[in-house]
Design a protein around this nucleic acid. Structure first.
Lengths: 137, 137
DNA sequence: CGTATCTTTGTAATGAATTCAAATATGTAA
DNA sequence: TTACATATTTGAATTCATTACAAAGATACG
C-alpha cells in the first residue's frame, strides 16, 4: 500500500503533517469516518489540531479527487479514502456505512444527465438494514 | 394527473389541509424544493403554517413512500413528488437539481449490497455543471 | 356530547459546517 | 543565513438546517 504522503503528492497536494495524518487515517480505516471521528482519533497525536483544519483538509482532498465524500444519512458527511468506483450502503439501524462492490459500473455512463456540460462526481447510495442488525432482532 | 388528496390516500396518509398543500406543491413543482421554499410558498395561503409542520409532513410522506428525499448537496434536503425510478443531477454552480431519466434502471438490482437484509431506498446522484451555467461563462 | 387520539404550532435547543482574522509554518530569492 | 511572500493552521464566533418538546387545536368515534 502506498503511503499517505505518496498519495497526497500523486494528487498534487503538499503533504503537511496534518494532511498526511488525515490521509493516513482514511487509508487505514475503511469505516467511512465523520469529521469528528477523524478529529478525535488524531487529536492525541497532534495536540494543536483544530477541527477547522480537518474540515479544510477534507475539502482539499475531495477537490483534488483524493477522497470520496459520502453524504448518505442526510446529516453528517462521511469520508472515504478508497476512490475506485464503488457504491455505499447505509444501515439505518446501526448507522454504519458499508462499501458496495459494483458488478456493473457502466450504468453511470449509460445514464449520464443530458443537460450536463461536465460531470465531476457520481454516487450510488443504498439504504436499508444490514444482516447483523436484522439478526439481532 | 391525480389530485394531491388522492395521492395521500393511496399511500395511507390522512389528508389534512397542510398535508394536501405540501403534496400538491410537490406534484405541481418539479423543481426539488427545499423545506424553506415549500414553507415560503404555502405560508401566504395557510397563515398559521409552521415550519415544523412542513418538516413533519415531509418525513411522513417519505416514510410512506409518497416522495423522494434528495440530499445531494450535503447541506439541505430537497424533496421530489415524482417517485418513479430516476436519478438526480446537481449543478454545483447554480445549485439546481435536475431529474435524470434512467435508460438502464436495472443496475440497482445488479449491484445490491450483499450484506443487506433489506433495501428501502436506492439513489443515484450526479454532480457537475449544467449546460446553461457553462454557456454563461 | 365527551373523551381519546391525531395533528399542528412555536419556541428552544442541537450540532454540523462555515467564516474570518490572527498566528504559525514553509518556500524562495538575495 | 536572513528577509519576505505565500501557504497553512488555529480557534472563536457565527450560521443555519434540523430536531425536540410540550402546549394548543382539530378530528374521530363511542
Amino acid at each position: 500500500m502506498k503511503t499517505a504522503k505518496e498519495h497526497l503528492e500523486k494528487f498534487g497536494i503538499r503533504p503537511s503533517i496534518q494532511r498526511v495524518a488525515v490521509m493516513d487515517y482514511l487509508l487505514k480505516h475503511r469505516t467511512h469516518p465523520t469529521v469528528d471521528e477523524i478529529y478525535s482519533a488524531l487529536a492525541p497525536q497532534i495536540p494543536t489540531l483544530s477541527r477547522t483544519t480537518v474540515y479544510n483538509t477534507l475539502h482539499l482532498l475531495y477537490k483534488h479527487g483524493a477522497i470520496f465524500v459520502v453524504v448518505i444519512d442526510g446529516i453528517t458527511a462521511h469520508f472515504d479514502g478508497f476512490t475506485h468506483p464503488h457504491a455505499h450502503f447505509l444501515c439505518t439501524e446501526c448507522g454504519k456505512v458499508y462499501d458496495v462492490e459494483l458488478k456493473d459500473s457502466s450504468f453511470t455512463n449509460h445514464n449520464a444527465p443530458e443537460n450536463a456540460a461536465e460531470i465531476t462526481d457520481a454516487q450510488l447510495y443504498y439504504k436499508g438494514v444490514c444482516k447483523e442488525c436484522r439478526n439481532k432482532n
